[in-house]
Amino acid sequence: MSVTLERRTSAISGVNPVAKLATALLVAGVLVLSIDWVSATVALGLELVLFAFAGISARTFWLRTLPVWVMAPLAGVTIALYGEASGRTHLEWLFVHVTDGSLTLAIATVLRILAIGLPAVVLFITIDPTDLADGLAQVAKLPSRFVLGGLAGLRLVGLLIEDWRSIELARRARGVADRGRLRRLPGQAFALLVIAIRRGSKLATAMEARGFGGDTERSWARESHFGGRDVALILVGAGIAAAAVTVAVATGDWNVIWARS
């Protein structure tokens, strides 16, 4: 997990996180406009080629992108069964209506989720929260009080995970762990929330005692650089999006979501 603050080295790890975020949003923002298999396939194909140059090990890639590979077909099945019907009917049972049209939409849905989800995961793997916060506050000019507050909250993740483990062990010691895990979940989540808020209140005092949140203009001990590499990454993203749209429009498959039905 990138939230565990490991520093990694790979081709894109040095790129400003704001550029990665912008690229992922740019690709997603364009692909989401249409539901067709052509634009999604073009984007996905280009992305898969580029992943090879990202410098991420195959193991990491599959491990981290696994949820996307699982989710995409499931969403596809949903659309195949309940998607807008058109063309030949293959199966009809209760609300289920599988048609040529719904199957085409399903394939497009699967490809589209992959094309949107995969690059985001790959780009986010190498984001260090500290660098992201630096970038968001200095490059994207978001309000520093909120960015740094969020960052400090994020640092508590490790502690909260440890708390969670202790809470679980303690349930066993208290004699209540024979019940189902799912039924204990709300109680444990509540206990975690209490502990988290306690920690947060103390952290807030510590931060305020160090002058955080005052009226003085803040200085930055480390500069967040935004240079040629960052612009290049965004251009690559724009290139993928443009190629996808161009090919889909050319083949006549571009299918804008709000213009449908």
Binding site: T130, R155, K202, L203, T205, M207, A209
Partner: peptide, 12 residues
């Protein structure tokens, strides 16, 4: 403050 864990603010 007292609690070592709750007054570490940043990751580095």
């Amino acid at each position: 403050l007292q609690d070592p864990d709750s007054q570490v603010i940043l990751a580095r």
